[in-house]
């Protein structure tokens, strides 16, 4: 007990310091990830990535004069495109709308699925903020959303030209998401 630690066990003295340093490095990486959005402990990874969209056939928003949306419309688009779940009552949807408008102006097909919304409210939203959608389906009961694994709005899916889901974003498409994720993905799957 009273002996000084044996020399070969000296390194053990540094173990607490090492553990603390490893812990801080991990914690720092976690905080950085939280900030940049690459680490989200509440995020639910999409089960659709790498697969085709589930079968569905949604009615149109009559007043918008846009074609309706069914799973058949997602095959043979010929270029990568987006499917966006949105609702007029969803505030982050207003935040992401300019980015969707920008993509639509650049010629990227954006298909919309209006989630649990009243038709007049959806129409008012499109009149006020502009319409980025080539096709628009109304999922008032929210059943198609469950088949896609949607757990909130907005959610955006990127599908390649063969209709295979390549990427899913849960949350608003901010200018950063547009630049750092969607831009490179559109080039990769072009």
């Amino acid at each position: 007990m009273s002996d000084a630690p044996k020399p070969r066990r000296r390194w053990l003295l540094y173990a607490p310091l090492g553990i603390a340093m490893a812990g801080s490095a991990g914690f720092y990486a976690m905080l950085r990830g939280l900030q940049s959005g690459s680490y989200d402990p509440r995020g639910v990874p999409s089960q659709l990535v790498g697969r085709t969209a589930p079968g569905f056939d949604l009615p149109p928003l009559e007043s918008a004069n846009l074609p309706a949306l069914a799973d058949a419309d997602l095959r043979g688009v010929g270029r990568p495109f987006l499917v966006n779940f949105w609702a007029s009552w969803c505030v982050p949807c207003i935040v992401e709308h300019p980015q969707l408008m920008h993509l639509a102006r650049r010629g990227v097909p954006v298909f919309g699925i209006n989630y649990k919304d009243r038709a007049p409210d959806a129409q008012t939203f499109l009149t006020r903020h502009g319409n980025p959608f080539r096709r628009l389906g109304r999922d008032e009961p929210g059943r198609v959303a469950i088949d896609w694994g949607v757990y909130g709005v907005p959610e955006t899916y990127l599908l390649d030209k063969d209709g295979i889901v390549r990427w899913r974003w849960a949350g608003p498409v901010t200018p950063e998401v547009l630049e750092q994720d969607i831009g490179p993905l559109l080039r990769r799957y072009a």
């Binding site: 639910v44 089960q47 469950i146």
Partner: peptide, 8 residues
């Protein structure tokens, strides 16, 4: 489970 993964 098929729609939402292990998380659910």
């Amino acid at each position: 489970h098929a729609r939402y993964g292990d998380f659910v």
